[in-house]
Design a binder for these strands. Structure first.
Lengths: 204, 204
DNA sequence: CGTCCTTCTGACCATTTGGTCAAACTCTTT
DNA sequence: AAAGAGTTTGACCAAATGGTCAGAAGGACG
């Protein structure tokens, strides 16, 4: 089975169903906690059939991560050097928070992987991710040089934005345990984070 | 084997060795990824001997979490209503960051558990943790009422502090992948976070 | 319809893993 | 030194799990 390009409608449908199911299971149980049986059952396939489409558990995981990476980094890519700096960064924060709300499984998939030392995506982190982050950090640095935002460490600013926004997806169980159920948390979080970064970045 | 109080020196030594080893293994592999064999080997014991001291894998995990909870919440408990508000909160941020630097395994232990839905500590979160957080959130609210810090949502402020500080322990692999190895990150992070919260909380 | 390629399945396998147990060893106490 | 409690281990077990394989079922096409 060629992992790269599906050739028939059945392949397309089943590969998609497997990846969807795998996202469910991996994001909730981590790599080690996920079982092929559970992924297969969630996808509505038998285990051998699942293994007809992917050579093994690891291959499914890798395909998932690779396929989701672009989606995950889109908000940062959209940070635009021609915009108004504070608005650009606040916009990035809100987009990232919106991603956490809309794609919590994707967030937890990456979180699980990184908490356990990122054994399967170390090369992605040190490669394309580092490149993108360094580039955007340089942009933020230029904004500070020009006095258009407060002088802060750009890398740590980006880390803090990741941390505060993904927190609402990754640590959802804790947030709900303390604030109670419901989805209003994201609205309140948006308001809080916008205020936090607006005040912290205001130049002068 | 009574789980609560060791009676002999051997018990004291071995129970401590087991918990130390379990912290290593659980924090690095998660509950499901940890094996009794690996914990036993790390502790320098045989697997049956390990099970002489604890009735099972879950019991070790629970004992770890319970024993570490106090340590973990100490910085928040120390938030003092008689201090200068901004200094108190900045102090809390720096204490929490110091915890992440000094006890990254403990941080990851909790992170692993919560990312996967906190199945084994839901009662702790909704009980003692929620109580403590609500209490300190009220304190922060009073400070805002008195105009001594900027008006922000206290719960989300606490979440943001947890997120930004624990990020350096839990997502260490990512931070190192982007910034390179070394421990200077914590120093830079301290400077960044102090500035972030000082600016954001300055009243007016 | 018959052929060929794709898709699917039941049965099976090897390894890992949490856990048990009887027996052996060690240490303290009298 | 003998007794008895506390400690340790090798051998073993059942269940879970990732993966294989031969062949059956299904669909496309001449």
């Amino acid at each position: 089975m060629d992992a790269s390009a599906p050739r028939t409608r059945i392949q397309e449908r089943n590969r998609a169903a497997i990846l969807e199911a795998a996202l469910d299971v991996f994001s909730q149980a981590g790599f080690r906690g996920a079982t092929l049986d559970r992924i297969a059952k969630t996808a509505g396939l038998s285990k051998p059939n699942l293994l007809y489409y992917f050579p093994g558990k690891e291959a499914i995981h890798v395909a998932l991560l690779a396929g989701l990476l672009d989606l995950w980094l889109d908000p940062l890519r959209a940070l635009d050097d021609s915009g108004e700096p504070v608005e650009e960064i606040v916009g990035y924060v809100l987009r990232k928070l919106e991603m956490a709300r809309e794609f919590p499984r994707e967030s937890r998939l990456f979180a699980n992987e990184i908490v356990q030392g990122a054994p399967r995506i170390a090369d992605i982190i040190e490669g394309p991710l580092k490149t993108l982050v360094d580039e955007k950090a340089a942009l933020i640095g230029h904004w500070a040089d020009a006095g258009r935002i407060a002088r802060v460490d750009p890398h740590h600013l980006i880390f803090s934005i990741w941390a505060t926004t993904q927190h609402y997806a990754d640590f959802d169980a804790q947030v709900r345990g303390i604030l109670g159920p419901g989805e209003a948390h994201f609205t309140d979080a948006a308001e809080f984070l916008e205020q936090l970064y607006r005040r912290a970045l205001r130049p002068g």
